[in-house]
Simulated assay, not measured.
Amino acid sequence: MHAFHEAISDCALQDLGWRGVPFTCDNRQQGNMNVKARLDRAFANADFLQMFEFSIVKHISSVESDHCFLLAECRATAAMGWSRATQSFRYENVWQSHADYDEKVRKMWQSGAGQGGLQGIVDALSMVQSELGAWGHKEFWNMERRVRKLQKRLERLRTAAIGCGPNDEERVVASQLREALRQEEIWLKQRSRVLWLHAGDRNTSYFQAQARQRKRINRITSLELADGHVSSDPGEVKEEITHFYHALYQSQGYNPMEGLLQCVQPRVTDDMNYTLEREYTAADVKIALFDMAPSKAPGVDGFTAGFYQRHWDGGRYHFGYLEFFERRRITFGTE
């Protein structure tokens, strides 16, 4: 089994998942002797998934064999009925590589920050959010296509320059291609959520494969409803998700805890309590911010920790958040 896993890893194959019963083999024995396991699987490499991104594998029960049939449906497009959700703002780390990025953000921030404190941060972030997304889409739209065009252009120049050294145009195109490849790698790394591998070493293929695998894992195509029925109908799935979270966050009432707390022995010393209750400082906010991974999932405003880390200047953000800790009151939009 260890050798099998090594072979899967060496070939860079990815499990395509499954639908149907959660096993492919049933030994048909009674009682404690019964064994069910998912022994049969379907794998594919990154090139296959790029061509058939929406492929699915179904487990089909058999009455003649102790193994299920595996039916692989190779799909290049999503099934009918599933519509793409409205694209919300998402901050892209690759925007930071643009020469005009810092100046653009500074002007957007100044035009939106009419107030001080936490409310001023909310207004400024709203302004940056409304303008930065459109600017980023314009400047970095379809980076893969830009890389391909630059590669073809460089090949033509080098083919035409056989017998002589590189000219100025070839050097410029090579520099542009190098930068385009770096930007593409940053963009893919953010989607792959790989934290241990750094951009800059031409890990584009790896990041692309990881991002595609994450997208497959996170895609919801069917859901087990409350009655145990598995549904692939988009309307039923959305209704079930809405009902689940409505019930999850609904108030269940309040029970006094004083009697229970009297039985709990205190473990927090006076010194520990003093540390916990002391006023927060700008240094505390900075330490907490820079301890975060810059490319992890963004907040509800679409900004990652990398945005705040990039623009931390010792005074732009932390005064607003210190105001929150002092007043114990949060402004809508800063969650």
Results as ranks from 00 to 15, higher is better:
residue 271 D to Q: 08
residue 87 Q to G: 01
residue 239 E to P: 00
residue 240 E to T: 02
residue 261 L to C: 05
residue 79 A to W: 08
residue 210 Q to M: 11
residue 224 E to L: 02
residue 221 T to P: 04
residue 265 Q to W: 09
residue 203 N to A: 13
residue 90 R to L: 14
residue 145 R to Y: 04
residue 226 A to M: 00
residue 316 R to N: 15
residue 2 H to G: 15
residue 138 K to P: 01
residue 208 Q to R: 14
residue 32 N to P: 05
residue 41 R to I: 07
residue 301 D to Q: 00
residue 234 P to D: 13
residue 160 A to V: 02
residue 265 Q to N: 11
residue 234 P to C: 03
residue 23 F to D: 02
residue 59 H to Y: 06
residue 122 V to M: 04
residue 300 V to H: 01
residue 240 E to L: 00
residue 301 D to A: 00
residue 37 A to L: 07
residue 136 G to K: 01
residue 46 A to Y: 12
residue 241 I to M: 10
residue 10 D to F: 08
residue 97 S to Q: 12
residue 200 G to T: 06
residue 167 N to S: 09
residue 251 S to C: 09
residue 305 A to T: 03
residue 200 G to R: 10
residue 157 L to E: 00
residue 33 M to P: 03
residue 72 A to W: 02
residue 115 Q to W: 00
residue 93 N to L: 15
residue 323 E to G: 10
residue 172 V to G: 04
residue 187 W to S: 08
residue 91 Y to D: 10
residue 276 L to G: 14
residue 168 D to C: 12
residue 204 T to K: 07
residue 234 P to Q: 03
residue 331 T to G: 06
residue 209 A to L: 09
residue 277 E to G: 10
residue 307 F to C: 09
residue 2 H to Q: 15
residue 228 G to N: 02
residue 72 A to I: 12
residue 71 L to H: 07
residue 80 M to P: 05
residue 265 Q to E: 09
